[in-house]
Design a protein around this nucleic acid. Structure first.
Lengths: 148, 148
DNA sequence: AATTATACTGCAACATTATTGCATTTATGT
DNA sequence: ACATAAATGCAATAATGTTGCAGTATAATT
């Protein structure tokens, strides 16, 4: 899996972006990399336990600025965070993302590798980034609902 | 303009959805209909002045449930509201919306009539709705930046 | 027009998500 | 080991959104 990185790789990642290698940061990275769905700040806070809320926000913001992670809002407007695919660079994220928010389990799936169609905006608008957001049933919940 | 409606039309709209015709609701409707950009709850609150925050939230939620307006989150995760195009029905919104969030003026433009390409999701996912979200410069801010 | 039932509103309190300032601690280069 | 800059934790505050309940307005009935 492209996003699967071991701890040395996380340290390199922090080095590369001139971020200090603290245990909190490494834990956030391995946490996010281990999931194929975006994670909300509250969820992260719950898992990380003893990391301060504020620190977590600051870590997430720093990572986002550096292009290590990206932020996506779920159906209820809460920010969720996920690792960027490798071709994201500082302040220059991959232009198009496909996110899928399951209406049952509420998970936000990042489907960055999916082919996306070009989007045409009206004359006068200048597009910098496009994100496509689908809602519905994820494979897991879809299976359950058809089985029932 | 398709969304331009007079007060009688707003009253009809409320009638149709079994909502009582209160002045607050009529003001919210005419406010939203007069703009081609989505409006945040704080902005609405500011304009409407003496309508209670809670009432406003409840009006917006009621309208959303009835399919009169729809909610879209801007870059900072704040909910913005806009009139639905006429083919939205109760609990069955138009499947695809194109929204454009200007990075300068922060306005969220609803471009519902724009032709949208089909989006392909991976095997197993079952899409219920798709919304496409573009960020960049709106015509007004684009003009200003090229002029400067 | 008065009465009544229901829906709506406003207030207070609370919940959640996010930010700022500052003192303390930690990481890292020398 | 030391110095410095960065990162953290705590307290306080802000912004956004929700809930309960009492009072008020709407609209149907008579």
């Amino acid at each position: 899996m492209a996003n699967k990185k071991n701890n040395y790789q996380f340290e390199d990642l922090l080095d590369k972006h001139q971020l200090k290698k603290t245990s909190s940061r490494l834990r956030v990275l391995s946490m996010l990399a281990s999931k194929n769905v975006a994670t909300s700040q509250p969820d992260l806070e719950g898992v990380l336990g003893d990391v301060d809320r504020v620190t977590l926000y600051r870590i997430l913001n720093a990572f986002e600025e550096k292009g290590i992670i990206h932020k996506v809002f779920d159906l209820s407007g809460t920010a969720n965070y996920a690792m960027c695919s490798s071709d994201c660079e500082e302040n220059h994220h991959h232009d198009e993302h496909l996110h899928f928010n399951c209406t049952v389990c509420k998970n936000v799936y990042c489907l960055d590798d999916q082919h996306l169609p070009g989007v045409v905006v009206p004359e006068g608008f200048k597009t910098e980034a496009v994100s496509i957001y689908a809602t519905g049933l994820c494979p897991k919940c879809n299976k359950k609902s058809t089985a029932a």
